[in-house]
Amino acid sequence: MTPVLSALWPLFTLIILGYLLRRQGFPSESFWPGADRLNYFLLFPSLLFSSLALAPLHSPALPGLAAAVFLALGLAWLALLLVRRWRGWGAGRFGAIAQGTLRFNTYLGLAIIGSLFGQEGLALAALMLALMVPTLNLLSVWALSAERGISLKGLLLPILRNPLILACAGGALFNLLDIGLPWGSDRLLALLAAASLPLGLLCVGAALNLGELGRQLGVLGVNTGIRLLLMPLMAFGVARLLNLPALEASVLVVFFALPTAPTAYALTRQLGGDSQLMAGLITLQTLLAVASLPLVLALLTT
């Protein structure tokens, strides 16, 4: 078995297991929302905080990585705005399509990067999350609210309350102040972080909704193809254009090859977007990523 498949099959097995467990009612229907909140507000922020607190923020590679992230996101966002104007999408539909194109499943991404590239890859991934999570939250809220207008407060509050963003900011602050993780706090955070990725992948599987795949098949298929194939190709082109080192380029491409974020459904529903379309995109992209991610990762390693 190739290293890529060896790294990926346990992750997708956890997703499938989460789907089967919820469909069987185990341990209970009320377990999954609580597990998702525990992970989102405590376990996953612990992973991000500790990774960024120890990340090489003074690395000379950081400016190049930031340039690649914002160039790739900027190109994709410009293309989305042009297509929206051409097709005349309303904010509800555009918000779902934009999130299906731009957002990514963080749990799956960090699990893949940790399996393939170890702690060095996770440190770079934490840097990317510090750049991308606030940016994508801002774009998502704007896309879902553009038609009815939104205040600066309405844009910034979801970002400032996001536990992932707060964890990234706190970890970066500890790093820049050279505080580190003293008095055994590194071990505490490591224990919390160790539970985050397997629980997160189980929750991803539990959230899959196959019933949404029968609706709007055309837009589901097109958006999924763009997210899983064209976006990583664009990221690869940007990495080559900016001459990123191999590891930075690989981490960049992995993030742009991931299926969209399950949390996009809650934001879409909260802001009055097309939540059925969003649920279909999350489900189809997660299912097809089983085939697309090994292909993309195999191309990276050739």
Rank of each mutant, 00 (worst) to 15 (best):
T224M: 04
N223V: 15
L258V: 00
F236D: 07
G214D: 01
M231I: 03
T224I: 00
N162R: 14
L277A: 02
V222K: 06
A266K: 11
A246F: 04
Y265E: 04
A235Y: 02
L208A: 09
R240W: 13
E248I: 01
G272K: 01
Y265H: 12
P262R: 12
P163E: 03
G237H: 10
P163L: 03
G272H: 00
L220V: 02
R269Y: 07
F236R: 14
D274M: 03
L197N: 07
F255C: 13
I179L: 15
E212Y: 03
G205R: 01
A190P: 10
R269S: 13
L181M: 08
V219G: 06
F255D: 11
G221R: 07
G225V: 05
L267F: 05
V254M: 00
E248D: 12
L199D: 05
R187M: 13
D178C: 07
L220R: 08
A279E: 05
V204P: 08
M234Y: 10
R227Q: 07
T268N: 01
A239R: 13
D178I: 05
G200T: 02
L201W: 00
L258D: 02
G221M: 09
G273Q: 01
G211F: 06
Q216R: 15
V204N: 02
L201T: 01
L191P: 01
G273Y: 04
N175K: 15
L229W: 10
A264D: 12
P262A: 08
S250P: 13
L176S: 11
G180N: 09
L247A: 06
L233Y: 02
L220T: 01
R187C: 13
L244H: 13
R215I: 04
N209S: 15
V204I: 15
G273T: 00
L229N: 08
C203P: 02
E212N: 06
L228H: 04
L271R: 14
G225M: 01
L228E: 06
R240A: 13
G280Q: 09
G221A: 14
A172Y: 03
R215D: 07
R269P: 03
L220A: 03
A195V: 08
A206G: 04
T224N: 07
L166A: 12
L271H: 11
A167T: 01
R240N: 11
A261D: 05
I165T: 06
A193T: 10
A246G: 06
R269H: 12
A279T: 09
R269W: 09
P262M: 02
L201C: 02
T268S: 06
P163V: 07
P198Q: 06
M278A: 05
G273R: 06
F174M: 06
I179C: 08
L197E: 00
I165A: 09
L217E: 08
T263F: 10
L210S: 05
P259A: 01
Y265F: 14
V222P: 07
A264H: 10
C168D: 05
I226P: 02
L229D: 00
M234S: 15
T224P: 09
L160T: 11
S185K: 09
G221V: 10
L197K: 07
F255L: 15
A261L: 09
R161Y: 12
R161K: 15
P182L: 01
A239L: 12
G200Y: 03
V254Q: 00
C203V: 02
N209R: 15
L267H: 03
T224F: 07
L188W: 11
I165V: 12
L191F: 03
L241T: 13
A239N: 11
G211C: 05
A195P: 03
